[in-house]
Amino acid sequence: MHTQTIPDEVSRYIAQSHIALALGAAEDDNPLLLVNQPFRDLTGYGEEEVVGRNCRFLQGEVENREARERIHAFLNGERQTVRTTILNFRKDGRPFVNLLYMSKLRDLSGTVRYLFASQFDVSRSQPDLLAAYDADLGQAISRLGAAFSESDLVIEGSLTTIANTVATVAQAKLTLSDLDGTGFP
């Protein structure tokens, strides 16, 4: 089990958020350190089932090639943030299209300490729900700066990755149409 002390301000912020959030370690295999209740509600997994694991287990056996390439570029430092749709599976096996947003949290010396992620199910959502999520995520990231500054952490990147909602919904619909053709529930 990976043990890393998470600043109280960070833990409180993530726990109190009403959007699905996760915090991962910035080293080794990027195991999850903390997930909130909306994350648990979305995936069906309890905290004890996910903490210490890399969240790639949510992908099951699906390839997710483009999304994985974007995530790898982010993890390798080629991108400050990543926002992509990725096919995930709930604990009960039901698939969902996850709109994943990831950013790095750096300490004041510039060292990446954590990976911050937000998840949103765009499987069958209405565009207005996605727009509301975008607004909520934008506010959450803005508030992160204040919450994390108490812990001498800075969120990397900007809100420019929270753009192009129409293209994201279109990508999710294509993924869903592929799913519908394979017999997934």
Rank of each mutant, 00 (worst) to 15 (best):
N36W: 00
N30T: 06
V154C: 12
D8T: 11
H72K: 14
A132F: 08
A20L: 12
I162F: 09
S142I: 01
E156A: 09
G181W: 03
R83M: 06
A146W: 08
F89C: 11
G77C: 03
A20H: 13
A146L: 13
L105E: 10
Q16F: 06
A73I: 10
Q119L: 13
A15T: 15
D136N: 12
E156D: 13
G145N: 12
F57A: 06
V166C: 02
E66R: 13
Y45D: 12
M1T: 14
V166E: 11
V122N: 07
R12F: 06
S103I: 00
A117F: 01
F96C: 08
D152E: 15
A22I: 10
I162Y: 04
L75C: 02
E61W: 01
K91G: 11
G24M: 13
Q139N: 04
S103V: 00
D128H: 12
D180Y: 02
L129R: 14
P185S: 06
T43F: 10
A135K: 11
T85G: 00
T84I: 00
E47W: 11
S109M: 04
D128L: 06
H72A: 14
E150M: 10
T182D: 04
L32F: 09
Y101K: 00
A117S: 15
A15L: 12
V169S: 03
I19C: 05
L176F: 05
C55N: 05
